[in-house]
């Protein structure tokens, strides 16, 4: 994530340098105006507040399981129960195949990834509403909150991923797994970065839109749960290859969902199931993420200046 922001920072760097120069001539260090220019995103300022970001991350982690008996164990119980439920409903009752991979492994892989995405997304989309109290009293780059969010969710994701690996090893020892690592598993860090970027991008756009009209928030909270069904979590993407809708392969439509290529690549890399979606789709997803994030940051930056009047 940091790497990505330093990239962004570089691209804005030259503009910022010009700005600083103009200011030093007048010797004003702070100028407060009704509106900044559209692309006046102060990434340098965000970097100055990196300590705050790390403290937010720490706070999110510490306070999440305070005064619970099981503590971080809840991070494991939740996906475990979800997977059992999927096995009964989608595997048992609906009888949807899982590309020859053991059901628990297949569902667990999808759930871990999706949970991280969904969790980041919902938390980020509530940024303004949840933090109105602090935002109304002190100024700091508002983007610090959603960024910290994405990072603190990594802890939970890491624990769930560990669970996945344990189950994976167990199956490997039993020997009937039919799942194996391949080179594509090395893409994992990039995949997580893409998930985080997408969640952050969508989240900050939604949060910017919901400061005044809360309708979107209501709509959005159930849209996220519907979105999961448009992503191959509980079924393999390979199932859609032979399906057509108005002459278009459903497979293609599915891949237009930027989360699909990420999840599929993850499953292919770790479980070897299905086919690789292809670099084309993966790059599409990556570009989608970058554009969305850039757009999100611009919109967010615009809204943060006076959101206190409308929230």
């Amino acid at each position: 994530m940091y790497m990505f922001f330093s990239l962004l920072w570089l691209s804005y760097g030259s503009q910022e340098a010009k700005l600083c120069k103009a200011m030093s001539e007048e010797k004003w260090t702070t100028v407060i105006k009704p509106k900044d220019k559209l692309f006046d995103v102060n990434i340098g300022e965000l970097w100055r507040y990196r300590d705050l970001i790390s403290l937010f991350i720490k706070r999110n982690i510490i306070t999440q399981y305070k005064q619970t008996l099981l503590g971080p164990l809840w991070f494991i119980i939740q996906p475990a129960l979800t997977v059992i439920m999927y096995m009964i409903v989608f595997g048992g009752i609906a009888g949807i195949p899982t590309d020859g991979v053991p059901r628990p492994l297949f569902y667990l892989a999808g759930t871990c990834m999706w949970q991280y995405f969904a969790e980041c997304l919902t938390k980020t989309s509530n940024t303004f509403v949840d933090n109105a109290g602090i935002f109304g009293k002190v100024y700091f780059p508002r983007l610090a909150v959603p960024i910290a969010n994405v990072f603190s969710n990594l802890v939970r994701f890491g624990i769930q991923l560990a669970l996945f690996l344990v189950v994976y090893t167990v199956y490997a020892f039993i020997g009937d797994s039919g799942a194996y690592f391949n080179m594509y598993a090395l893409l994992f860090p990039v995949l997580v970065l893409m998930l985080a970027g997408l969640a952050l991008g969508f989240g900050i756009i939604i949060s910017s839109l919901t400061t005044k009209y809360r309708d979107l928030q209501v709509l959005f909270s159930f849209l996220v749960s519907l979105w999961m069904y448009a992503t191959p979590i509980v079924y393999p993407l390979s199932q859609t290859k032979s399906m057509f809708w108005n002459g278009i392969q459903v497979h293609t439509l599915m891949c237009l969902n930027p989360v699909t290529p990420i999840i599929e690549t993850f499953k292919y890399g770790f479980l070897g199931c299905g086919d690789f979606v292809g670099w084309r789709w993966l790059i599409y997803s990556f570009v989608f993420m970058v554009v969305l994030l850039a757009l999100g940051i611009v919109v967010f930056n615009r809204v943060q200046k006076s959101f206190m009047d409308t929230v």
Partner: peptide, 9 residues
């Protein structure tokens, strides 16, 4: 915390 409607500080 919030931006002015017009003017500059």
């Amino acid at each position: 915390v919030t931006a002015p409607t017009t003017g500059e500080i």
